[in-house]
Design a protein around this nucleic acid. Structure first.
Lengths: 132, 132
DNA sequence: TACATTGTTATACAGATATATAACAGCAGT
DNA sequence: ACTGCTGTTATATATCTGTATAACAATGTA
């Protein structure tokens, strides 16, 4: 897993982590049984405190998405398949809604949005290719 | 102007206000010369502290978008036309990018995204009609 | 001048977020 | 048992956000 957080964002670091794990599961990158990075390992990689990682994992555990065992680590729970399908739908719908609302506020038409979507998709793909 | 904030969001209230004023200007809802609601009035309407509104207005002033005069209020600056055009483009592109990245994380294709976009647009419009 | 409106500032306080430091405890392989 | 990994917990500190309260200052109008 390639986690990354943005310390300048107004969204709390632990919340960013939670979202990324959810997305990874929804996308199938993380499957039931997979073990998440240890608190210290991920903390070092992201240059944040282990306590912040702990808070994110704790949140995920409270949601029933992962299970943590003392001394063994944190693993994706079996039941996350059902979660996965539902979450994927809801997350996508919410993301689309956010864009539609913002576009509406900015006075953009749907056609303009679709055109921009294809345009930005191309741009992002080219940028991604450059970074390889 | 119909401002509204979400106290449960992890995005600070003052930042939400800043975004909404920017969007309103970009959409033309707020034009140069227009006066924003007074600190106290908006605070009462949104049920937040006047100091929070003040912080938002202060941010907008630092960005050169509005001008505040003691005793007179806070007004949208003339130069905001140029800002408006540039900001609108950038804000839309960023919003689209956010969706594309999230969709990619969730393993959604562009076709799926476009279809969902039309679907959600219809849903949102129906909901909006209901609320009238 | 008096008044109501506007923005400004100071103080104190609370909660969430994030950190550093450090010690403690469970699990697995040597 | 020892060692190295894992998660857990406690303490203290700092920053940001947001609030309540209250006084002060500038503008425009009656």
């Amino acid at each position: 897993m390639r986690f990354q957080v943005d310390p300048t964002s107004s969204i709390p670091l632990y919340a960013q982590l939670v979202e990324q794990v959810k997305h990874a599961i929804a996308a199938g990158t993380l499957a039931p049984g997979d073990t998440l990075p240890s608190l210290r390992e991920l903390a070092v990689r992201l240059r944040i405190s282990p306590l912040t990682v702990k808070k994110a994992y704790g949140e995920l555990e409270a949601l029933g998405i992962v299970a943590t065992e003392h001394g063994r680590g944190t693993t994706v729970r079996a039941g996350s398949d059902a979660f996965s399908a539902r979450y994927r739908r809801e997350a996508l719908a919410q993301a689309v809604d956010r864009l539609l609302v913002e576009a509406h506020h900015l006075g953009a038409t749907t056609d303009e949005l679709i055109a921009l979507l294809y345009e930005r998709k191309t741009v992002l793909e080219e940028e991604a290719a450059d970074h390889v």
